[in-house]
Computed example of a mutant assay.
Amino acid sequence: MPVLAPDWTDTAACRTTPYRWLATAPGRLYGEDTAAELAATFPQDDYVRLDATGAGRDKTYRNYSRPLLGPGRDVPAGLPALWRGLVVDLAGEPYRRQVAALLDQPVAAAVEIRLVRHADTDWLGPHTDRADKLFSHVLYFNPGWQVGWGGCLEILDGDDPTAVHDRVVPQLGASALLVRSDRSWHQVGAVTAGRGRERRSLVLHGLR
């Protein structure tokens, strides 16, 4: 049975400034019960600690990452059934065609998917993604997440990290979809220390 709602897209909700992007509210991609089960069974194993800091880098970040799907990589056999269904839906042609119509792009040839966990003070610096990507779609699995806990996706007017145009709170069931371009600057604010909460997400890239 499909996990994604067939009518989750809404062209009218797509924003065009500072570039083409949209945020979907909880309940739009899938129902509340589905979101709760995905959060409760969010995979915990097989992550790699990534720490890319220092001057001279194109992108700085610190997080835990686990690839799920991509060129040369099949869906892991050990995923919970609902998670496997979600990954299959996100890799399918119907989803890729929906995104292409929504963002006014060619249909992605393939997708790569990974899970990401941001612990205390983890962040992702300003960047625009690689040129081989058409779009990024980030799904969130954080019950009760509050703005004061940090970890918001920040849409930027340029490469200045203080030039925040809008924010997406990583609440359970919400998502953000961003077209890739040379001006699609965005970042993830640092998770506030001492809250005892991880920011958990699925990150999908549509590939040319």
Rank of each mutant, 00 (worst) to 15 (best):
R130N: 13
M1W: 09
V169P: 04
Q146A: 13
W145H: 08
W21G: 00
S201T: 10
D122P: 09
P170T: 08
R199Q: 01
W185Y: 13
A40V: 04
V88A: 09
R199L: 01
E32F: 05
D46S: 13
W149Q: 07
T17P: 00
G158R: 02
D58R: 15
P161K: 13
Q44P: 03
A174F: 04
R183S: 15
N142D: 03
T11D: 10
T41K: 10
V111T: 02
T53K: 10
L207Y: 13
P170K: 05
V99F: 01
R197V: 07
V87P: 03
V191A: 07
D157H: 12
L68Y: 08
R130H: 15
A110P: 05
R73C: 06
A174V: 08
E37W: 03
K133G: 09
H127C: 04
G158T: 04
E32Y: 03
E154L: 07
A36D: 14
A131R: 15
T192F: 10
I155W: 00
R73Y: 09
R183D: 13
G196M: 08
R57V: 10
T17A: 15
A77F: 12
A52N: 14
R73S: 09
A23E: 07
A110T: 09
W21H: 09
A110Y: 08
L207R: 12
E37T: 15
V138T: 13
T53I: 14
